Amino acid sequence: MPPTPTLEYRDFHRWRRPAEVAFWVGLAILNTVFNSMVAQIDHARVAAWEPWVWEWTSSLVILVLVPAILAAERRWPFRFDTWRTSLPWHLLATVPFSLVHVTGMVALRVLAYRVAGVRYDFGRWEPGFGYEYLKDFRTYFIIIALISLSRLWLVRWQGEARLLAAPDEGPPVEPVERPERFLVRKLGREFLVNAREIEWLQAAGNYVNLRVRGRDYPLRSTMAAIEERLDPTRFVRVHRSYVANLDFLAEIEPLDTGDARLKLRDGAIIPCSRRYRAQLRERFGEAAAV
């Protein structure tokens, strides 16, 4: 039986987005302060404020670009099984990343120097951009590494679902084509989740989240692939990104747009698109509609 969600995990999940923002902002501040102090020592002949302007303008632009890197990593996940496919795309992404960073950084420096009553000179763009690109290349992949490590830590804490593999010898205990149970690995422990206990499934990039007793377990699969292996008498597609277990469905709430909201027994709400609404009502029964 899967364990109930711990208080620590629920609290983290609730505050995950603010925690992530705080992490990137805090990391940027610490890194910028350290680099500014080093730059001030290395450039003792310039005004004391100039190295701080150099570092802060650079860090501010990189901080603004972090969401774009996060989006790129979601589009091309950098994992042990995908890095060969994802690496060329990320190498290509370092070029616009550096262009935007350098352009924004120089614009902010020009503005800061103008406020100080002096002129900022970046120098020749050819060697200047080449130098900045090498640093941006390193920065981009440091951010990618931090994203990958944080995901690995979160998956180990949250738990990751896998399909049971067929045995090396002899017939499988249950049908592999339509699994009755899923293997969940969490913090070094393993346990089985019955397919009938899955409340709904949600597509999330290259993963499908299995919702079981208030906890999401990511399964590395596409929605189309896993839908084919679920019991069609119990699981039904209700949205491009959702499959619901009819055993947990309590109410269908029609919307003026033609879509609907589905209320489950535990009070959770998931969307139902117009495309699947009529089919769902036929399967679930008119008595559930309001």
Score class of each variant (00 low, 15 high):
R237I: 04
V236F: 06
D247S: 03
Q279E: 15
I269P: 00
D11C: 14
R261Q: 09
Y131G: 00
S273N: 13
E286H: 07
A289M: 13
W83G: 01
L187F: 15
V64C: 07
R45K: 06
E177W: 14
E253M: 06
L201W: 02
R274Y: 02
R189F: 07
L164D: 06
L249Y: 04
G258L: 11
S58I: 05
V208Y: 06
W52C: 10
L70V: 12
F122G: 15
E55N: 07
R124F: 11
G130K: 05
R114N: 11
R138G: 10
R17L: 14
P96R: 13
P2G: 09
G258Y: 04
V176G: 01
R109Y: 02
T4I: 09
V193E: 12
F137C: 03
V102F: 02
R75F: 03
R178Y: 01
R10G: 08
D42F: 00
R109F: 01
D42T: 02
V208E: 04
A44H: 07
V21N: 09
D247W: 07
F122H: 15
G214K: 08
A39V: 00
A165I: 12
P179N: 02
A44T: 10
M37A: 07
L60V: 02
E132Y: 06
S59L: 05
T6G: 08
V66F: 15
A260D: 13
D11S: 10
P171I: 11
R277W: 08
F78K: 03
L30T: 08
P3Q: 08
L154V: 03
T103G: 11
Y140P: 00
L264R: 15
H90E: 03
A203G: 11
D42H: 07
E197P: 10
I147P: 11
P218N: 03
L230Y: 11
L219Q: 07
V208F: 11
L183I: 03
V106Y: 02
Y131E: 02
E177S: 13
